[in-house]
Design a protein around this nucleic acid. Structure first.
Lengths: 187, 187
DNA sequence: ACCTGAACACCGTTCAAGT
DNA sequence: ACCTGAACACCGTTCAAGT
């Protein structure tokens, strides 16, 4: 005789995201998630293989949100300004979801990592501007350069690595304009 | 009546580094460390406050090694080539110690993070080239730009985030020369 | 003064038993 | 078909008792 479902995969992932973001990855226990969705810990295993898989689901949900935010950046004709829009959107996203942002770049395509198609969709807008700035022949390398810089900057910022004083916002703008012009100048 | 010491703080940290690097952070258990140094887990608490403190000690030991490697980079007159030397040394270090490298940039100056003096010493060579390239007025921002790019690149590389094909070494060289010239050109 | 076994609270995960 | 309590193995950590 069927028992009515008392929760759902979506509710579980949502609960996990909330816990991770508000209390850190270490506090993401199966018991905490279970309590939040109103069920006992063993029941979670009906919908999620194990804790690692749940972390993976949280990562993919975060990637979907990031894809949405980057796709929503207003398209402007000048590639330099377009790049700035994407860079600021990425940084704003990271500030809004610091823990899950860190998850995205940490648990990359391990065995069972995020869907490669999803990763490609997230990267698409950056690849587009990179091609405009550096030319199609160098699009991939240029995209990797900007992405590496932006992610490195943001992750160091979130980790508190910029502790020698100076204005962090200014440093972000400085790096952004330097890189934009560097990629735009002829090889 | 005193009991002879059966291990030392150094041996404990060394054991922890070996475990972390060969099996990952999750496998760094107090029991695994204890077994490796020939003692029972509770004895570790005579020399280390707790597991978090041990991770912190591993991080600082790694930073010391990185400081040594960066300080050992041959000094050359052209700042562009000097920057390349530092960038390659950093990447080589990360490839040799991927897990502990990740630790460095992750557990930054949290409450009880690494010694700020040590962090400053590690950053010193980069700050020096940055000042030469971009001028003293922009040294800090320039240093942050290169460091962010290099760290971002390396951490994405280690996470397997460069999965769209293309040669990763080439992309590193591409980004390096672009950034070096960008920082050297007048504001 | 250092080391240990025993103990505690807390994990992730499995499974037989309920409905 | 889903949910649960009980159980297991395994953590980190404390502490009284040994030497």
């Amino acid at each position: 005789m069927p028992t009515p479902e008392r929760t759902s995969l979506d509710a579980i992932v949502e609960a996990a995201r909330t816990i991770v973001e508000s209390q850190g990855l270490a506090q993401l226990t199966m018991q905490a998630v279970a309590e939040r969705v109103g069920v006992r810990a063993p029941s979670l295993y009906k919908r999620v293989r194990n804790r690692d898989a749940l972390v993976q689901l949280v990562t993919e949900a975060t990637l979907l949100d990031l894809e949405r935010d980057l796709a929503a950046v207003e398209v402007v004709p000048e590639p330099g300004r377009m790049l700035a829009g994407l860079a600021h959107a990425l940084r704003a996203f990271a500030h809004a979801h610091p823990v899950t942002y860190h998850l995205i770049f940490t648990s990359a395509p391990a065995p069972g990592g995020p869907d490669p198609d999803l990763l490609a969709r997230v990267a698409a807008p950056v690849l587009r501007v990179a091609a405009e700035l550096a030319g199609p022949a160098h699009a991939l390398e240029a995209a990797r350069t900007v992405t590496a810089w932006a992610h490195g900057f943001i992750s160091m910022e979130l980790a508190g690595a910029f502790n020698l004083g100076g204005d962090v916002d200014t440093a972000y703008e400085y790096g952004l304009t330097r890189i934009a012009t560097a990629l735009a100048s002829p090889a």
